[in-house]
């Protein structure tokens, strides 16, 4: 597959993969870990994320994947994928489909992804455009809750322990799952497009603001004791809102989130297809179908055996390994090698 991306396509892709299905669930763990200061911890995590992307931008050319790395990253992305699909099914079972068997929902999501990944690469990557007009709607719905917010919930500020800081930062990483996509896709950017520190800054500011609003709303809407028992606080906030023309705006939010999640699944499968450079040959098509078969079976096992907690733990630590440790090791080794080559 030979293709190129514009800067806008690249960042929209990254934004969707990073926000993906985690956007409605990551607030609770971070607030549980860092209490009322979760938003401050998140800002620090954002700054760290900014510097990680800046470093990625500087050294992305040295991130060259060999066969082993391709396999490792594909397995990791597949792991994210199966957890995403299982989580989507779980949320839908709670909010919309209480009586529908899990395999029906999983099969529909997987079939949609299969159709998309059988299409042209440009069709897959451009799917994010569908979400652009829906995105402001989420915040429109959310801001309806402004009168119910208790701003004193934010106090006392800066009162958490070092351990809570560390745990908070660890949990904040959940919001940035998929950072490694920067390295995977950066090489596909059009030669005419340049990314400066300012561009990365704008991106971090945008994604950070979106996340931060949801964290602040959660802290100000619920007490800390309530947050401990609410897994998806944003949906609860919306459920409590009353508007004249719609009784349950949370359902509309769930619809938008469903779309968001399905597109994230499509994007992640596309990344695996891209890593292995699967072409539209018979073998390539068989491999794509194989990936989707796995994507159908494994989430059902996760749902059946209730492996969600283990899965989320793996995701959190996986971020450190796959978005930080491995990329920087590869970059270091390749930089050292290229310097040696230049000398010889």
């Amino acid at each position: 597959m030979k293709f190129s991306l514009t800067k806008n396509q690249f960042f929209v892709f990254l934004f969707i993969v990073q926000t993906g299905s985690i956007s409605i669930a990551f607030q609770s763990p971070i607030i549980k870990a860092a209490q009322q200061d979760a938003w401050i911890v998140f800002i620090v995590a954002l700054v760290i994320q900014f510097f990680i992307l800046v470093l990625f931008e500087k050294y992305y050319k040295h991130f060259v994947m060999n066969r082993l790395l391709r396999w490792i990253y594909s397995i990791y992305i597949m792991l994210i994928l199966v957890l995403f699909v299982a989580n989507i099914q779980k949320s839908l079972a709670v909010w919309v489909f209480q009586n529908t068997p899990p395999y029906v929902i999983v099969a529909i999501i997987v079939a949609t992804s299969l159709y998309a990944n059988m299409s042209r690469p440009e069709s897959v990557v451009n799917l994010g455009v569908l979400l652009v007009p829906l995105f402001p709607l989420i915040f429109f719905f959310l801001f309806l809750a402004t009168p119910d917010l208790i701003w004193t919930n934010l106090f006392p500020m800066g009162n958490i322990s070092g351990k809570e800081w560390v745990n908070g930062l660890k949990e904040a990483n959940l919001a940035f799952v998929g950072t490694e996509m920067y390295l995977i896709y950066r090489g596909y950017l059009l030669n005419t497009e340049k990314i400066f520190m300012k561009t990365i800054g704008k991106y971090i500011l945008f994604i950070g603001s979106c996340y931060l609003i949801t964290i602040l709303f959660t802290i100000m809407f619920f007490s800390l004791a309530e947050i401990a028992i609410v897994p998806e606080p944003i949906v609860y906030i919306l459920k409590s809102q009353e508007v004249q023309f719609i009784e349950r705006i949370d359902l509309f939010f769930i619809i938008i989130w469903m779309m968001w999640s399905v597109i994230t699944v499509i994007y992640l499968v596309f990344t695996v297809v891209l890593i292995f450079n699967m072409k539209k040959t018979k073998k390539g098509i068989r491999s794509v179908i194989g990936i989707h078969l796995l994507l159908f079976i494994i989430p059902l096992i996760i749902i059946w055996k209730d492996f969600f907690k283990v899965g989320n733990e793996i995701l959190m630590y996986g971020y450190f390994v796959f978005a930080l440790i491995i990329p920087f090791l590869v970059i270091l080794v390749n930089t050292w090698r290229s310097k040696n080559d230049q000398k010889t």
Binding site: L92, V96, F97, I105, I108, I109, T112, Y115, A116, S119, S123, V124, L127, L130, L251, I254, I255, M258, M259, V262, I263
Partner: peptide, 15 residues
């Protein structure tokens, strides 16, 4: 599938 069906249909239509 209710709203979920519309969402899936919309994605397929868009693709």
């Amino acid at each position: 599938l209710g709203f979920f069906g519309i969402v899936i249909g919309t994605i397929i239509l868009f693709i």
